[in-house]
């Protein structure tokens, strides 16, 4: 074993006409980890996966597998499995034929007994044995997802690439399947690069999260790193529910102050310098602050309530305990929990 990562991407750049899909992406995936690429729609996530799979040719940059430069390899030679967002099962074919298709690739030349054994293995692993002889068009969304996953697993590739595999499923199924996928991956010890716009999936599954914004890697780190120490307001906005409060502030009298003078956090910067202050709703206590804030909307979320309040010259989210019965118009005095304000100068 060498210590090359399974996948190393460096300076990957791709432009489609006027759209810069990837602008110098660096990332690596180790030999046994699940890396989630998190980004909004249009951030370049799918282009990144397709370039790694060899379906797109990058304008610049390189892709390497296990230390071997592979930028010009054709998709078949890369030995990665790509699971598409819409599953792309072949219609009219049975589930079994769909699963066998990758194994019957002329380049692979597997003996018939090996094919049978692998199908049996994957059918048991995913509990899809009873579906094997059904046409793929007769499956439910959840079943299609399992078969598509099976088609990726059955190859035993060097790397799994998954493109928003749960987006087309209903919420309940999504939550169950994301845990299943992560558990399966650990069992198989095959690395996975998982692309999603869903912060819940990223936080629940990832060993490491790569945040992609406008074709650039904005931050890499564990879920905690990225949630607690986001590198920029854009990254901070991608994670957290309800979303983080972002307030433009100016330094004066030893405080970062909002436009209306509300003090947000202690400032050591020179008077007059500007910054964006980020305060997660859970770090904004409902009371104890100097300035009043009127409740405009209250949403109940079960374990907590989210109040939208008029504060610091704009609207902010404050978490309230579930039993608090505060009608619209109630006055709060929000205060920032000490040391929890995020400050991005500039």
């Amino acid at each position: 074993m060498t210590d090359h990562p399974r996948l190393a991407v460096a300076g990957l750049t791709k432009r489609f006409g006027a759209i810069q899909a990837l602008a110098g992406v660096d990332l690596h995936v180790g030999r046994d980890e699940l890396v989630v690429v998190l980004g909004a729609t249009g951030a370049g996530k799918t282009t990144l996966l397709r370039t790694i799979a060899g379906l797109e040719t990058p304008d610049a940059g390189s892709v390497a597998f296990d230390g071997a430069e592979a930028t010009s390899w054709n998709p078949a030679a890369r030995d990665v499995a790509l699971m598409f967002q819409d599953f792309a099962l072949y219609p009219d074919w049975t589930v079994r034929r769909n699963l066998e298709f990758p194994l019957r690739a002329p380049a692979r030349r597997l003996p018939e007994s090996e094919i049978t054994q692998r199908i049996a293995w994957v059918a048991e692993l995913l509990a899809i044995g009873h579906l094997l002889d059904k046409p793929s068009t007769r499956l439910s969304g959840g079943q299609m997802q399992r078969v598509a996953l099976g088609r990726a697993l059955v190859r035993r590739p060097r790397l799994f690439l998954l493109d928003e595999p749960l987006t087309n499923l209903d919420a309940k199924l999504r939550e169950r399947l994301r845990l299943e996928i992560a558990a399966l991956r650990r069992e198989l010890h095959t690395p996975m690069l998982y692309v999603t716009h869903d912060q819940g999936e990223a936080l629940a599954m990832a060993d490491r999260i790569v945040v992609l914004i406008a074709g650039r890697v904005a931050q890499v780190g564990s879920a905690e790193d990225i949630y607690d120490r986001p590198a920029s307001p854009e990254v901070a906005r991608l994670l957290g529910h309800p979303p983080i409060n972002l307030i433009a502030a100016t330094a004066s009298d030893g405080f970062w102050r909002a436009g209306d003078g509300t003090p947000l956090a202690p400032a050591t910067a020179t008077v007059g310098s500007r910054a964006t202050i980020g305060i997660r709703p859970e770090h904004l206590a409902p009371n104890g602050g100097p300035r009043p804030a009127q409740i405009r909307v209250v949403q109940h979320h079960g374990a907590y309530q989210v109040a939208t309040v008029a504060w610091a010259g704009g609207e902010s989210h404050v978490l309230l305990p579930p039993e608090a019965a505060l009608p619209i118009g109630t006055e709060l005095h929000p205060s920032v929990v000490q040391d929890r304000a995020l400050i991005w100068p500039g």
Partner: peptide
């Protein structure tokens, strides 16, 4: 015909010609 059909075949180890004859033509 969804592109993903033949792209899936490409990634799964088929050449474009093979994918054309096995996936696109029947569709």
């Amino acid at each position: 015909i969804p592109r993903a059909f033949e792209e899936s075949a490409l990634v799964d180890g088929y050449t474009r010609t093979q994918a054309f004859f096995r996936i696109i033509l029947p569709q």
